[in-house]
Design a protein around this nucleic acid. Structure first.
Lengths: 343, 343
DNA sequence: GTGAAAGCGCTAACAG
DNA sequence: CTGTTAGCGCTTTCAC
């Protein structure tokens, strides 16, 4: 059970190291009976190639990195990340790749991580959660030669590959839905303006209003940071303007808004209808069940790996784009359902 | 900006490769002025050692793995894991180690992952989230030579290193608290009996009851799987026995229990007092604020890495144990506070 | 279809 | 204190 090498297998089989290597790597030009014999020995000895040696020789590590930037401070509160990570990890398995996880929280982290987040750091490619404007690590990464895929559109997106969802269209659909239900004063709790997601989802709101020639009332627009608490606070700011519907740019903020509405004695959806955005698995159910825009976050993670692997394997240099569709999920909070679902 | 090697730096500095290597690795036996000169060249060229080569030569990868077993299906719903991962990732940074993440969900995952989760798979050591009884991957891991640390006590714990928290003591404290407040019919929603955590937390409940010579009423004991929904269902099963207090083995189950209690028209804590276990960051606040047993999950992650690194660096072979303390956090749900906190 | 040989870039004795 | 010399275990031409 000690550490076997290619050479050991070669000796035991009576062939050369090269042949064993070919078998291990599923390469052609090996006679079938030889292949079988080698495979047998490998099986019976429990041999596994040494990955470090392979990396050194082939200049390929079969390992990709996932970099989560500090701006993503909600990492451990928002179900978004665990779900994303799950999709990515699963897909890495599929490709027989190892996933390196890099959480960057401080400047020192950044310095320490950079040498490991590169080719010489054993990574064939990197998936980066798009951070804020002008993040130094992002810039360094973009300048390095390593294949890169952003999850979520970054600010300077001209030359990079990224995945995104149809944020503008999704939000437009959400707001249109509220408008179609006859709501007159539709407000929005937008995401932070420093994020492309925040900007895009607000744009969808504006588009829907514009389409119906409804003048934009700035008092009906406020901002949160995607968290429950920020949604709660935002809703309180909205009360003086008497909205009869709110589109929240995240489910968490929608939950906070509902909490504020309840506390003020009003009802959802009777007095104020709510539509959220995300439809991620919540650990605690929101009451009433939330009408929301679903984003396929697990598949998002899968696609991120696919896109990256494509880039790595096919040496693609032009930036790739993958934009995924969203879907309106109608539940209780928007008031579209006649009878309330029993819960 | 191309890929520099030790040799390149050596030439540029006019010393030998070995000397540069010594500088890079902070080894003694280099004259100070030489060290400085080398450091300067390294700095100005942006050289980083090739990690694959280093691993191959030194038989050390500076990379550890975190293996999360499929039994941990709640990975993406429970805030426990993200928080744990955060602690681990941070500590890996501290040690200049890379963290490899392995989510094992299916049998195939297991097969695919094993070759990568070993020395030849480039890992110096592994942190494993304790799974159920007789998990095949766990067995293989324990048989392999690689340093291993379990997070949470595994079933067969005699020969392995693990971290755990004082589950029995914590639960005992929780239940005693309820009893001290004069509650007569204290029930428990225990965790799954297939997990050591579930078993231990139930034991704490039993110990507290026994200490006061309160006969155990099996009708007041039920089981969940740590999730909100299971707590909700468990509470419903408890109603016929009219408990006036419930100790839930997780905060999520406590949240579910509260939901059930509310729905039935009863009040927390007036009619039924609740104490949970975990005190993890929830994305949505529980109302009323939950009295609970706090476990230092972030520090748990940190300790896991410390223990593993100790094992790796000092070639320790005897199993290590780290048991962390818990703490009772009194809030609203147990009824101990006279006046309700305003929220 | 197969083997020999030359590295991949680094570490680690071992001389000096 | 410093340089020389072997490898670490694998991939990959290049002959045969």
């Amino acid at each position: 059970m000690a550490n076997l090498t290619l050479e050991d297998i070669a000796k035991k089989t009576g062939v050369s190291r090269s042949t064993v290597s070919r078998v291990v790597n599923n390469q052609p030009n090996v006679r079938e009976d030889v292949r079988l014999r080698v495979l047998e020995v490998i099986e019976s000895t429990g041999y596994h190639p040494n990955l470090a040696a392979r990396s050194l020789a082939s200049q390929r590590s079969s390992m990709i990195g996932l970099v989560l930037l500090r701006s993503v401070s909600s990492f451990f509160t928002d179900p978004y990340f665990p779900r994303l990570v799950q999709g990515i990890a699963q897909r890495c398995n599929y490709y027989d790749n190892t996933l390196g996880l890099f959480l960057v929280e401080t400047k020192e982290d950044e310095e320490k991580i950079f040498p490991r987040v590169s080719r010489s750091g054993m990574l064939d490619g990197i998936i980066v959660q798009a951070g804020h404007h002008g993040d130094p690590l992002m810039d360094r990464l973009m300048k390095s030669e390593i294949p890169l895929v952003f999850v979520g559109r970054p600010f300077h997106s001209d030359t990079v590959s990224y995945l995104d969802i149809e944020n503008v269209e999704g939000s437009y659909t959400a707001v249109s839905h509220l408008l179609n239900l006859g709501r007159q004063r539709v407000a929005t709790i937008a995401g932070p303006r420093e994020s492309t997601v925040g900007i895009d989802r607000k744009q969808g709101y504006l588009n829907a209003m514009k389409e119906r020639s409804i003048p934009v009332n700035e008092d009906l627009i406020t901002e949160g940071d995607f968290s429950e608490e920020s949604g709660y606070q935002a809703m309180k700011r909205l009360f003086p303007s008497h909205p009869d519907a709110v589109f929240a740019a995240s489910d968490m903020m929608a939950a906070g808004a509902i909490r504020a509405i309840r506390e003020s004695g009003l009802k959802v959806p009777e007095d104020i209808a709510i539509v959220g955005f995300d439809d991620l698995p919540m650990n605690i159910p929101i009451n009433p069940f939330l009408t929301t825009i679903r984003q396929p976050i697990y598949r998002f993670g899968v696609s991120a790996v696919d896109t990256l692997m494509d880039q790595i394997n096919n040496r693609i240099s032009e930036p790739q784009r993958v934009i995924m569709k969203t879907e309106l999920v109608i539940r209780e909070s928007c008031g579209a359902l006649k009878e309330r679902t029993v819960r």
